[in-house]
Design a protein around this nucleic acid. Structure first.
Lengths: 292, 292
DNA sequence: GCCGCCTGTGAGTTTTCCTGACAGGTCCAT
DNA sequence: ATGGACCTGTCAGGAAAACTCACAGGCGGC
């Protein structure tokens, strides 16, 4: 008969219990209920034929043997974690447009780093096509304007709500109340989304209105900054304007309307099960929803 | 979001695979199928987002990262095993009668030690009542003549087949063919089982025959040896005579008949889940059945 | 006394793990 | 070539482990 396999999960539960001096605390650390921990410890005691913990009213104390075992186990688990962490993982790289990066991601990234101090996020500022392997991209935030590569895991984030934005004083000065009033405004555009104003006019039901960009910026984020500086009206997705609106740098006199595009997460298929990838994805999804 | 729990079972499967250079070998060591190991390894690779093994036609070779991880894991598991083995277990103690010990157990004990080199078995030569705690007994072989203590785990072994035995030459000289012929034999008895002959006569359907012990030994094993020396007929359970019969030291001219008692294993309840206890119990059960 | 905090335990359920069977691949011997 | 031995990969289905939920009981503090 072969030597019995070590009951690894039970050993982990016991180690945490001995270290924390409490089954409930160990259960919290392991993300299970106290009952599960209690069972694991009893299973070990039965298997070894001796008691590992002295039960006390408000806590548990390892017996001498239990303490020695716990210390061995602690070292062993540390060693495992060390080995796993040494696995030279390719860095976690998030690709998104400069606009999203500046107006949504970077201001919120501190929160992710606070919750996940051990995860390092590299940014890749880009939009459009992605080569996950060549550029070592783990996750990309992309608009549905672009086609995802084959095999990529896609998680829809949100439909882009779009609307005109400008500086609050600018809006007040022009007295905007209906879309037609925009004829009085200076219309700002961007080279990367030449159809932006046309798309908006269509979704709000004024396809007849003609608003042509009187000034065109090379980059979307320059456009946003121009609008925030009071230089005119920009057509912007809510997600990139929301912070500026909250700070009072921008207003959206006509609100936002669901636009023709949506934002998605593209996840490198070979990395989709990696824990840091999963954590980043979960965080982006949650924070995107929270800020929409 | 909490840091992910280490997938311990998968890590163990990978460690064995890397050490043995083969999933099938690892599966053998762990007592599972190769499919299970394959899944575990793939799960790890997915979770870490990198490949741990280079697949080759007839084997697998750890990648550099995989080799480093495997070495860490190997140390960690060794440490765990060490910690567990240090748990000062009470010694494994088997209690049985001197007769069983001499005529059945000890000749077979080598086989158990060969299959379980890491298990040390202490013997407690005794019969009748057992105090598992005071005498630190783990397992006892006992006859149903005795009452087991409360709470003991009982595993029936076999019904005692009993019959008269003597030296082959002695049987030939007397020309025994029917029980009545035993009147010509010298009847040997033992103080510990004074009713042995009577019980046999009853189970073979000759309650009328009267065979009284003409010589009585203090111990059963002395009785067996006396019979094997040609001093007369002894009433013996098959299980204690079987080896002497096989070696030609004894014969059972009337065979063996199911007797009124049976042999059982009594297992100390607080030790019943201990792996060495379970292995000893399994071995005794298997070998008892094999030799009956 | 009552309440809060701990652990123990049972039934029932979810999740994990494993099996068993098959497929594809390489190497070796025939 | 061709068949056999021996790997690994994969899938559906089933056994076993793990977990949850709910309740019970003990102890200490307010």
């Amino acid at each position: 008969m072969a030597p019995p396999r070590l009951p690894l999960n039970a050993l982990r539960a016991f180690e945490a219990t001995a270290r924390l001096g409490s089954m409930s605390a160990a259960a919290g650390e392991l993300g299970v209920t106290h009952g599960a921990v209690s069972r694991h410890v009893r299973e070990l005691e039965a298997q070894f034929g001796l008691s590992l913990l002295r039960r006390q009213p408000k806590s548990v104390v390892p017996t001498p043997g239990g303490a020695q075992l716990a210390s061995c186990l602690g070292e062993a688990f540390d060693l495992m974690r060390l080995g796993v962490s040494r696995l030279a993982p390719s860095p976690l790289t998030l690709s998104c447009s400069a606009t999203i990066a500046m107006n949504w991601l970077i201001p919120r990234l501190g929160g992710f780093k606070r919750d996940n101090p051990d995860v390092e996020v590299r940014l890749n500022i880009n939009y459009g096509e992605v080569d996950f392997v060549r550029d070592e991209i783990s996750v990309a935030i992309r608009s549905s304007m672009f086609r995802a590569p084959q095999d990529v895991v896609i998680r829809p984030l949100l439909r882009e709500d779009i609307g005109p934005v400008c500086h609050p004083d600018y809006a007040a000065r022009l007295g905007l109340s209906v879309p037609e009033d925009l004829a009085r405004a200076r219309i700002l555009g961007t080279a990367t989304r030449p159809a932006a104003w046309r798309e908006w006019l269509e979704v709000i039901g004024h396809p007849d209105l003609l608003l042509d960009a009187q000034e065109t910026y090379d980059h979307f984020y320059l456009l946003i900054q121009a609008a925030a500086s009071g230089l005119g009206m920009a057509m912007a997705p809510r997600i990139v304007a929301i912070d500026a609106i909250a700070r009072g740098h921008l207003v959206a006199p006509f609100g936002f309307t669901p636009g023709p595009h949506e934002l998605s997460l593209w996840i490198a298929p070979h990395l989709r099960a990696r824990s840091d990838v999963k954590r980043l994805v979960a965080w982006i999804q949650a924070d995107m929803i929270a800020s929409s």
